[in-house]
Amino acid sequence: MATRGFTGRPPAAEIRERLPPGQYLTDDFPVLQMGPTPRVSTEGWRFTLRQGAKPLASWSWDELQALPRTRWGGDIHCVTKWSKFDTAWEGVTIDDLLAAAGLEAPTGFVLAEGHDDYTTNIPVPDLLGGKAMIATLYEGQPIEPDHGGPARLLVPHLYFWKSAKWVKSLRFTERDEAGFWELRGYHMYGDPWREQRFTGD
């Protein structure tokens, strides 16, 4: 159904083909979060892999820095409808974290947990094979607090709410347990190319 009188400003073809449905391109880096930016210092910082309540492995800031580093460049898509092209991140892949801990993923799902008590769920296969990292640099600089610094999860092939800011742990879960937004109607998986914004999409 066309909206009477609306023509809009469709972007050029080369932009349009990189934009998932319903998204528009922005040059800024908008911020999406439910509350204030927590003040997270790298001093005393720890990142932990756990299964249920049980810690499996954990790293201090310096220990994390000593792990193999990976760069990722590409497009990111926020459920509030902006997309940003050619972003550049650096950090430690989940594969490298598991390898450093001498672990295999013990279950099929993860709840990522932030210092702000934010949670979001991701299936393990979406975190492996170089698809995700604990990012500590954005465009070569420490990630700003508003964008999740000092460290955030980066799962760029899913809507960006899955890339938990201020990440402090990944908790392996037996079942796919809904996180903060997922409990409030956001999609359990969140593939931008299938426009999985909300439950039922």
Binding site: A2, T7, P10, P21, G22, Y24, K81
Partner: peptide, 14 residues
């Protein structure tokens, strides 16, 4: 809110 142009192009905003 979603608006649709005659050629099928759509824009969404909150």
């Amino acid at each position: 809110v979603r608006l649709t142009a005659p050629d099928g192009y759509q824009a969404q905003r909150s």
